[in-house]
């Protein structure tokens, strides 16, 4: 038992590295918030563009969404982080991680929001257009408010899954929770920093996971 505590909850090690891991928490939180905001906004905007059914534009959006849903994010991160400097584009590891995960979340969000838009019955469009609302007005005032209800639970789940991927930043040296913890671990030769990191993630994400579970029951249509 003592050996266990010494390995995973070593007081001295924890005290020494807690501040840097706390800094990592801020990096993780900041990244997550930025990714969620820009990813969901971007994906929703693309889904709305797709609603106009402009052939070429829709095809491009689908190709983009498919590629970023089919490729492992880590492949994209390494590709951009190690590839771009070779053609003279230097981005910080933070920027690379932010960009890639935003693009990935936007791709998923686009598909989810598009599914929500198409799930709104045709009669809603017709009723609205018959009273003189234009296409864009109908989209904004009639269709999107209804799509939002359908879309919130899957979008929340996806947003959580992708913000958790900020941990991948450790591979390219982003000083997020995991990045700080692995550095600390290699200096301290002790597993306590990793334990602390795991606890930090649970502390951050468990409430969100429970929240998403609540959302699902809240938005589940009765009788379906």
């Amino acid at each position: 038992m003592e050996a266990f505590l010494d390995t995973f909850f070593n007081g001295a090690v924890l005290a020494r590295y807690a501040p840097s891991i706390l800094q990592g928490v801020w990096v993780t939180v900041l990244l997550s918030v930025l990714i969620v905001i820009s990813g969901i906004a971007g994906g929703s905007a693309l889904a709305c563009l797709r609603a106009y059914r402009i052939r070429l534009l829709s095809v491009l959006i689908v190709i983009y969404a498919d590629i970023f849903r089919a490729l492992p994010p880590l492949v994209l991160i390494l590709l951009v982080f190690f590839g771009l400097p070779n053609i003279g584009i230097l981005l910080s590891s933070f920027t690379v991680l932010y960009l890639i995960l935003t693009l990935v979340l936007a791709a998923f969000a686009e598909e989810i929001v598009w599914a929500g838009i198409t799930a709104v019955p045709k009669g809603q469009w017709e009723a609205s257009r018959s009273t003189g609302l234009g296409f864009t007005q109908t989209l904004i005032w009639v269709v999107l408010p209804q799509a939002v209800r359908i879309v919130i639970p899957p979008l929340t789940n996806r947003a959580i899954a992708i913000t958790k991927m900020t941990a991948l930043g450790m591979v390219i040296g982003v000083p997020d929770i995991l990045g700080q913890a692995t550095t600390a671990q290699s200096f301290s030769a002790n597993a306590s920093p990793l334990m602390l990191a795991a606890i930090a993630y649970v502390f951050l994400f468990l409430p969100l996971v429970i929240f998403s579970r609540w959302l699902e029951t809240r938005f589940a249509a009765p009788g379906v």
């Binding site: 009273t131 003189g132 234009g134 005032w141 009639v142």
Partner: peptide, 8 residues
């Protein structure tokens, strides 16, 4: 009121 507000 939707069309009254948004169209008119």
């Amino acid at each position: 009121t939707l069309a009254l507000r948004k169209v008119r």
